[in-house]
Design a protein around this nucleic acid. Structure first.
Length: 267
DNA sequence: TAAAATGTTGGGTA
DNA sequence: ATACCCAACATTTT
């Protein structure tokens, strides 16, 4: 479910209740949630480690512990909460970290696609990710160079985490609409001004999502209201906010893709 | 009922 | 090597 803005919101909100706490144990109710190491080693190694920082890289939540790093990927339906130990049980809370302050940090995941990783260095997991789109070092020039290195449609390229980290289906569609670019335009065929527009639009869309604490459009993610500000995502048949033309929905590499046929002409 | 859902990955093909 | 397509993962909702 979550993309960069939603994971960033989790990181910001979890810092206060998690940093400084020690993990006293973990209950693994769905062993396949544990990507690495084995569930048994995971539980043994994490016990007694203190949470030093809570940050984000792409769509991964990164918790630096006193010894290792704990990374969490929420995939489609993951949710994270900190609640007093023994609070009303959540049937989808498959991995539960017990904390030394009487709370538990729960990873709920209806669809069970999510994963947790316990590694010495975060880069073991995040090593192949592309640049952080909101980093100061990520320039329009770098985006242009990366676009020119491929001859692929913009939409699937934006979703490729090794191309750019953190952009998912919602923010890809929103950014392409802001930039006035058709999702099927080829990456190596953009003019310089179009590259600049795309760069600015990606950052605007993501920052806007963060400002609204992310988008809550299904029953899992809560708290954000960016869903009330979508320009095209999920709005097929409705008027484009810029020109009034009906928003269209097509399928591109197996993902619903929403765009304005007028503002985002093929060329 | 069938289709889709904010995500990735691995396999096969050209 | 690169690009593209599909299936798989598991569950809920429309």
């Amino acid at each position: 479910m979550p993309e960069l803005p939603e994971v960033e919101t989790f990181a910001r909100q979890l810092r206060a209740p998690l940093v400084g706490r020690t993990i006293t144990g973990v209950a693994i109710k769905w062993p396949r949630h544990v990507a690495t190491p084995s569930p048994r080693e995971f539980a043994e190694r994490i016990r007694g480690q203190r949470i030093e920082t809570v940050t984000r890289r792409g769509k991964y939540l990164v918790l630096e512990l006193s010894g290792d790093a704990l990374l969490i990927h929420l995939k489609m339906s993951g949710d994270l909460t900190v609640v007093p130990a023994g609070s009303a049980r959540d049937k989808h809370a498959h991995t539960i970290f017990h904390l030394n302050d009487g709370n538990e940090f729960r990873f709920s995941d209806t669809r069970k696609f999510g994963r947790v990783y316990l590694v010495c260095q975060p880069e073991e997991v995040t090593g192949k990710l592309g640049p952080e789109p909101l980093a100061a070092e990520f320039t329009a020039k770098e985006l242009g160079q990366r676009l020119a290195a491929h001859s692929r449609a913009l939409k699937p390229l934006l979703l490729d985490q090794t191309f750019l980290a953190g952009v998912g289906n919602i923010y890809a569609d929103e950014a392409l609409h802001m930039a006035g670019l058709h999702p099927l335009r080829k990456s190596d065929a953009l003019r310089a001004d179009e590259v600049k527009r795309l760069w600015r639009s990606i950052r605007r869309a993501l920052n806007s999502g963060i400002r609204h604490n992310g988008a809550s459009i299904d029953w899992v993610y809560r708290g954000g209201d960016f869903q009330n500000h979508f320009r095209v995502y999920g709005r097929q048949g409705e008027p484009c906010p810029a020109c009034g033309t009906r928003i269209r929905r097509i399928t591109v590499s197996q993902r619903g893709t929403h765009f304005c046929p007028h503002c985002q002409r093929k060329r």
